[in-house]
């Protein structure tokens, strides 16, 4: 499949939205338009966890649709995960690893600065 081609040095922190746009314990989706491709990023807000915001690719490699931000978040053991709304597999929000199948999703560094949500893309 098409791997990310842009090198790290072109990456930067991009402001996506305000913290008030986040939904507690749930996800929203951002569209990142880069030179050759559009990228959909699912951003989850879990205020009761250390990292607070998590960002992963929105594409579900198993269900093959852009749906992950609409999944339910929670934990499996110590992993913070999202469960795909299509077929319920868990993806770890910190590593991108699928806990049921040998599949990965992309993980993006994310942070909250002042009242803004930023992604490193």
């Amino acid at each position: 499949m098409s791997e990310q081609t842009i090198s790290a040095k072109n990456k930067h922190w991009l402001t996506i939205c305000q913290t008030s746009d986040l939904i507690k314990d749930s996800g929203i989706c951002a569209l990142i338009e880069q030179e050759f491709e559009e990228k959909q990023v699912a951003i989850f807000h879990l205020p009761n966890t250390e990292k607070q915001v998590y960002a992963v690719g929105n594409y579900d490699p198993i269900g093959q649709a852009n749906v992950l931000y609409r999944g339910i978040v929670g934990s499996v053991g110590d992993d913070i995960v999202v469960s795909s709304p299509l077929y319920k597999q868990h993806f770890c929000l910190t590593t991108g690893k699928c806990l049921q199948e040998d599949k990965y999703i992309e993980v993006f560094p994310a942070r909250i600065i002042d009242d803004y949500v930023q992604l490193f893309v």
Binding site: K24, S26, G63, A65, V67, R70, G71, I72, P85, L86
Partner: peptide
């Protein structure tokens, strides 16, 4: 209602059944 929103399956959140293409 806000406190319940994140609890629902997508079908309940969007008040429709998700199909294979989202």
């Amino acid at each position: 209602k806000k406190p319940h929103l994140s609890l629902q399956d997508t079908n309940d959140t969007y008040l429709g059944n998700m199909q294979k293409d989202g």
